[in-house]
Nucleic acid binder design. Structure first.
Length: 292
DNA sequence: GCCTCGA
DNA sequence: TCGAGGCAACGCCAC
DNA sequence: GTGGCG
């Protein structure tokens, strides 16, 4: 029973992370604990969930549309193609999806209410073969420094088992075309500033041994991992917002798992802003002028 | 994980 | 009645 | 137009 809604739990003792011994019931407990945090970032966005009915390392599939068998309490929003997409805006929906073995929750850059305006940019810093996490940290801190000097607020979180993601609020002021331009502008700027450190080359061959700085091609409906979402990794890691000071002190994405996420959140609170603030907008308008 | 379809 | 299949899909660039 | 890439 969640908020007066009955939810039947099938196979409660099924292992979702077999090596770690995490059963579905264990997993649902985690989801219940972190509900307010993940909901805060997932609500009123179009959800893509990834389901692993037999565990994190077995067959999976993506799900976007509200299935016909969804309970009535599940809220949805109509996409421009006419179909209904899940709005992960309440605990009951989260638990229902948990029972369906949804191990990852991805949401759109934009909110349902303003579908053509992303709320933020995201840079994805993921080390590939032969790179250590220290390189990711070095680049992230360089980016942070630069943004600070431009008076631009940014946030950082782990992306999964290996990388970091940097969020830059843009106040729902731009459409996807403009946001893509701004994102690309920054990516080129950083690639230019740290030519030995990072590359924005899309083709793997051309990347050499530099860190791939992915400025995440964005479009309406594109979704990326939501803050506080678990990831289907062998560590049962969580996409965890962190403080820039923590990045500086040297963290590892594997440090954050569904085992310790709640303790951590209780200790530091939610350090991600709602991503709707306008404080960066002024800095961006001049940048947008320059791009033209 | 659950539903639908076809043998 | 039971197994197989579905459950997502944009923009960019090189070819 | 198709394929690699995220």
């Amino acid at each position: 029973m969640v908020d007066n809604n009955k939810i039947k739990i099938s196979n409660p003792d099924k292992l979702l992370w077999s090596e770690l011994g995490i059963t579905k019931v264990d997993y649902l407990k985690y989801l219940i604990y972190i509900t307010p945090y993940i909901i805060k970032h997932a609500k009123d966005r179009f959800l893509t969930t990834i389901r692993y009915p037999d565990g994190y390392d077995k067959k999976f599939f993506y799900q976007k549309k509200v299935p016909s068998y969804a309970p009535e309490f599940v809220d949805s929003a109509r996409w421009k193609d006419g179909s209904e997409y899940i709005n992960l805006n309440k605990q009951a929906t989260l638990v229902w999806l948990g029972n369906l073995a949804s191990l990852e929750f991805h949401t759109t850059f934009n909110r349902i209410q303003k579908p053509f305006s992303p709320t933020n940019l995201v840079f994805d810093l993921d080390p590939s073969e032969g790179q250590v996490f220290e390189q990711v940290i070095e680049v992230a801190l360089n980016v942070y420094d630069t943004l600070n000097k431009l008076n631009i607020t940014s946030y950082v979180k782990t992306s999964g088992a290996t990388g970091l993601q940097i969020y830059i609020p843009i106040g729902e002021k731009y459409d996807y075309n403009e946001a893509r331009k701004i994102s690309k502008f920054f990516a080129e700027y950083f690639a230019n500033k740290y030519p030995e450190l990072i590359t924005i080359e899309r083709l793997k061959e051309k990347r050499g041994k530099k860190l791939y700085f992915d400025y995440l091609q964005m479009w309406e409906g594109k979704s990326i991992i939501t803050p506080y979402s678990p990831r289907a990794t062998k560590y049962a890691s969580v996409s965890m917002p962190v403080k820039w000071e923590e990045v500086e002190a040297g963290i590892k994405p594997q440090d954050f798992t569904i085992f310790n996420a709640l303790d951590r959140i209780k200790k530091v609170g939610d350090i991600f802003e709602p991503l709707l603030d306008n404080k960066n907008v002024e800095s961006f308008s001049s940048i947008l002028q320059q791009i033209k």
